[in-house]
Write a protein that binds this DNA or RNA. Structure first.
Length: 516
RNA sequence: AGGCCCGUAGCUCAACUGGCAGAGCAGCUGACUCUUAAUCAGCGGGUUCGGGGUUCGAGUCCCCGCGGGCCUACCA
């Protein structure tokens, strides 16, 4: 192992650490009693009712013990202010030499405690002459010494300066990104609130949260290339799941009326603003229901998320104000295409569709079937125009090998996607439960696979066996949680809603580099 | 996978047609007992992503590589 070269500032912090130890201070103690947070203190005294003062009024209200990270330090001779940050926010602390044990202020606080160090403080709350609620520190304790300097952000009139702009730095060292950027912490809190809302929404309806295999001998449920791995003891090839769908529907066969799973799927694809190889998916299946019913559920659930995350059904996202208030517009895919392009595609054969695509400037190649052409036209001319939440219904059967045929429109399936802000937020259908049709659809997938489509699904005989025992009429739903999080937090990249997005290895060439 | 852009101090960024690598913050020394982008005086800090080339001279130009961003492709 080569020794990492360390900066001047890091070297100094290591010296400080040694100095602290030689003075008898443990730079990494075991615990600290916390009785208040920045948020509770600020709330308590910003209401204008409880006014703190140094005269000792209501001392039982004002005595607090808190812990956090030093974010700024301002020393003025024998007294100093510093800001520290806990999980709820920042609070200012005031330290006087004469309030601390002999020598502590000069030889420890001033010299050996730095921005980035974790400290515990105990004292009373007061308001400074400038009006800022602060804690007057009477006990100060180092809780963990930081050996690396923390980037320092400055703020004036609400504008933040010296924000770390290097995306690579932020993704690789997310702990630093989170520590210094409150807005990044907020994104992930919103994401957590979003998922918690969805979970309780589904739990309250009596649906059962289940866990199905990540490691699968056969993958399916979506059109995507899988990751492969190997199990040593059984000496077998395994796939990381690309979807939960086929296992969850086996559970509907087994007698659960409603099951859902929120979990990671893995797809062996490129990375982009909208794609991370591992991502979080919600899938829900409800027996005795169809896709019309499912649209109502989606409206309710997403409306609940909007209220939970933003406190309102109206949300400003980028330049758009979006209303998630029910009901949302519902429009069949072919009608939506006609509205935008003037082309009525329903009933056209493959050559006629190719001609329409050409008229619309959509590129078509020979491998594309009728369904794919329609999908391309939709994706290019319609999807980006749908800003307010909209249900697009009734898709071509070729694109949906697991969806039930439409009850009245030949060649289509009972499927919908909800589109919002120009992007898909969910995908759902009346589930195909006729084992004969399901077998035929799988066989069509196999033909596509043989023709070179490496995303075609393999045939899953056990799944067909399950259907042969009888699966109720069922409505199914899939929601890309990361993309929903992008929407509700206004983030432009999926990497900004995933704590640790996939990155190339940081240092040099990987050891097990493949042949050059 | 292809195209475009980027990589300079711990962080944010400068450095003209190729001519001594700089500033703010952070850090260090000193002053200051209600400051808040604290202030004031002084000081240190660089493998300019890595390797090669052109040149008297390269952060700058050329080639190769590494890493990142955006777009395209892929991706229901």
């Amino acid at each position: 192992m080569t020794e990492r070269s360390i900066s001047e500032q890091e070297a100094r912090r290591r010296e400080e650490l040694a100095e602290l130890e030689s003075l008898g201070h443990n730079p990494y103690p075991y615990e600290f009693e916390v009785t208040a947070t920045a948020e509770t203190v600020l709330e308590m005294f910003d209401d204008g009712v409880n006014q703190p003062g140094e005269d000792g009024t209501a001392p039982e209200l004002m005595r607090v013990s808190m812990a956090g990270r030093i974010m700024a330090k301002r020393i003025m001779g024998k007294a100093a202010f510093f800001h520290f940050q806990d999980h709820t926010g920042r609070l200012q602390a005031y330290v006087k030499r004469d309030d601390l044990p002999e020598g502590y202020y000069n030889s420890v606080f001033k010299k050996l405690l730095d921005i980035g160090d974790l400290v515990g403080v105990e004292g009373f709350v007061f308001r400074t002459k400038m009006g800022e609620v602060s804690i007057h520190v009477e006990r100060l304790e180092l809780l963990s010494k930081a050996l690396r300097p923390l980037p320092v952000l400055k703020e004036l009139d609400g504008k933040v300066y010296n924000e770390v702009s290097d995306k690579e730095f932020r993704y690789r060292q997310r702990y630093v990104d989170l520590a210094i950027h409150p807005d990044v912490r907020d994104v992930f809190r919103k994401r957590a609130r979003m998922i918690a809302t969805i979970r309780s929404f589904l739990d309250n309806r009596g649906y059962v949260e289940v866990e199905t295999p990540v490691l699968q001998p056969l993958y399916g449920g979506a059109a995507a290339r899988p990751f492969t791995t190997h199990h040593n003891a059984l000496d077998m090839k395994l796939y990381l799941r690309i979807a939960d769908e086929l296992y969850l529907k086996r559970l509907i066969v087994g007698g659960f009326d409603g099951v859902y799973e929120i979990s990671k799927d893995f797809r062996n694809e490129g990375l982009s603003r909208f794609h991370n190889p591992e991502f979080t998916m919600l899938e829900l299946y409800v027996a005795w229901k169809d896709y019309n019913w499912m649209m109502n559920l989606v409206e309710e659930m997403v409306e609940a998320v909007a209220i939970a995350v933003h406190g309102s059904t109206d949300v400003v996202i980028g330049e758009n104000r979006i209303s998630f208030k029910r009901p949302w517009k519902r429009i069949p895919m072919f009608d939506a295409i006609e509205e935008q392009t003037g082309e009525q595609l329903f009933g056209l054969d493959r050559d006629e569709l190719a001609a329409a695509a050409k008229r619309l400037g959509v590129e078509v190649d020979k491998t594309m079937g009728a369904g794919k052409i329609i999908d391309e036209i939709f994706g290019e001319h319609v999807e980006p125009t749908l800003i307010q939440p909209t249900f697009i219904t009734d898709y071509p059967v070729e694109l949906s090998p697991l969806a039930k045929r439409h009850r009245s429109k030949p060649g289509l399936v009972e499927r919908f996607e909800a589109i919002c802000n120009g992007k898909e937020i969910c995908n759902a259908f009346s589930e195909l439960n006729d084992p004969r049709d399901q077998r035929a659809r799988f066989e069509e997938q196999v033909r596509l696979g043989d023709a070179g489509d490496d995303e075609a699904m393999p045939i899953d005989e056990d799944y067909i066996r399950a259907l042969e025992y009888g699966m109720p009429p069922t409505a199914g739903l899939g929601v890309g949680i990361d993309r929903l999080a992008m929407l509700f937090t206004g983030q432009p990249s999926i990497r900004d809603v995933i704590l640790f997005p996939l990155m190339r290895p940081e240092e040099g060439v990987a050891e097990d580099e493949e042949s050059a």
